[in-house]
């Protein structure tokens, strides 16, 4: 009744699929913010939104080539980080949390507003900005490629390859930075800002650099995802997505270079398998599980993520693999 082979195949596809890439990039950004610098950015999805929409609007409304659109998306992420950081980075951590989640919601409301239809496409969103990306693909876009039962469409395979290359470059960048004296200052700030100030470091400047860097990773994630799906819909960029990325980060281990990537892969593997299992188990006239409605499976995903986030934070803040003594999150 349950098709375990397809469960596994779907799970493996999710392990390396576009969602895993997208959330890995969001979580790499959050790792710089939260894992290394202690900044609580709850609006990471807003950075993805300005990245994706920045690119889409630049290409569609201003007729720029795609590579320029990508640059616009990245610059949009930098600008958003500066705008959010200036008022909040001198204040206690939770102010940044509140302002970032509010800003992400503001951005979503604006892009989906009917009054913005001509500019951002309103609730319909945007399409048709990324055709030149698919033209670059070395694969046959319309063909299915089979890897031992795990199948990808050629156009997705191209996006996945590009996506993982971007993730790899991001990891190298983070690795170089966190083992440098720059990273040492960040880790010190996470632990005690005042101590770092007393040692002559401009804490505000470092926090701003971290916020911008992590925000750019978020924006790049948004760009990659928008190129993968070839469409931008405003309601995809809703606040819970940021919490998904947090869950992925904490699973893999905050404050570790590979944590966000491993976390994101595990997160989507598990989510795909439970999702598919529940869908299969609740479908049909005589379902295996009868007390859950087939239509509620989508909502159950959010409940599971919420519970996992809370439980992990309470009992294993160091993530699945981390050591308790290394965790830096319970400092304040």
């Amino acid at each position: 009744m349950i098709d375990f082979a397809s469960l596994l195949a779907n799970g493996i596809a999710a392990l390396v699929g576009p969602s895993a890439i997208f959330f890995a990039l969001l979580a790499i950004g959050l790792n710089v913010h939260f894992g290394y610098c202690g900044l609580l950015n709850f609006g990471q999805i807003g950075f993805a939104l300005v990245g994706g929409y920045g690119m889409g609007i630049a290409v569609l409304n201003f007729g720029l080539p795609l590579w320029a659109g990508v640059l616009v998306g990245i610059v949009a992420g930098v600008v958003l980080a500066l705008l959010l950081g200036i008022p909040t980075l001198r204040l206690r951590a939770d102010y940044l949390a509140i302002v970032t989640i509010a800003a992400a919601e503001i951005l979503r409301l604006i892009t989906r507003s009917t009054s913005m239809t001509d500019f951002s496409g309103g609730t319909q969103g945007l399409t048709g900005y990324g055709g030149s990306f698919r033209q670059l693909s070395p694969f046959d876009n319309g063909r299915f490629y089979d890897f031992y039962g795990v199948r990808f469409l050629g156009q997705d395979l191209w996006a996945i390859c590009v996506g993982w290359a971007v993730v790899g470059l991001s990891l190298i960048l983070v690795f170089l930075l966190v083992r440098s004296p720059w990273g040492r200052v960040l880790k010190a700030i996470r632990e005690d800002e005042d101590a770092v100030r007393a040692l002559g470091k401009n804490v505000f400047s470092y926090k701003m650099q971290a916020l911008v860097l992590g925000g750019v990773f978020g924006a790049v994630g948004g760009i990659v995802f928008a190129l993968t799906t070839q469409s931008l819909t405003p309601d995809f960029y809703s606040p819970p997505q940021t919490f998904f990325a947090y869950a992925a980060l904490i699973i893999g281990g905050a404050g570790r270079v590979f944590g966000p990537v491993i976390g994101s892969m595990i997160f989507w593997f598990v989510l795909s398998i439970t999702d598919n299992f529940l869908r299969q188990a609740t479908a049909g006239s005589n379902p295996l599980i009868s007390f859950i409605d087939n239509q509620d499976v989508g909502a159950i995903r959010f409940v599971l993520v919420g519970v996992a986030l809370a439980v992990l934070m309470a009992f294993r803040p160091q993530g699945i693999f981390g050591k308790r003594s290394e965790v830096l999150l319970d400092a304040r």
Binding site: G38, L40, F42, A93, D94, A97, P240, F243, Y246, A247, I250, A299, I300, R301, F302, V303, V305, G306, V307, A308, L309, A310, V311, M313, A314, P317, L329, D330, A331, R332
Partner: peptide, 20 residues
């Protein structure tokens, strides 16, 4: 537990409750 940990827990709780 640190206040930031508690804050993240409240987020998880909010997500779970909203979708319940």
């Amino acid at each position: 537990a640190g206040l930031i940990a508690q804050l993240v827990i409240s987020i998880g709780l909010a997500l779970a409750l909203r979708y319940l």
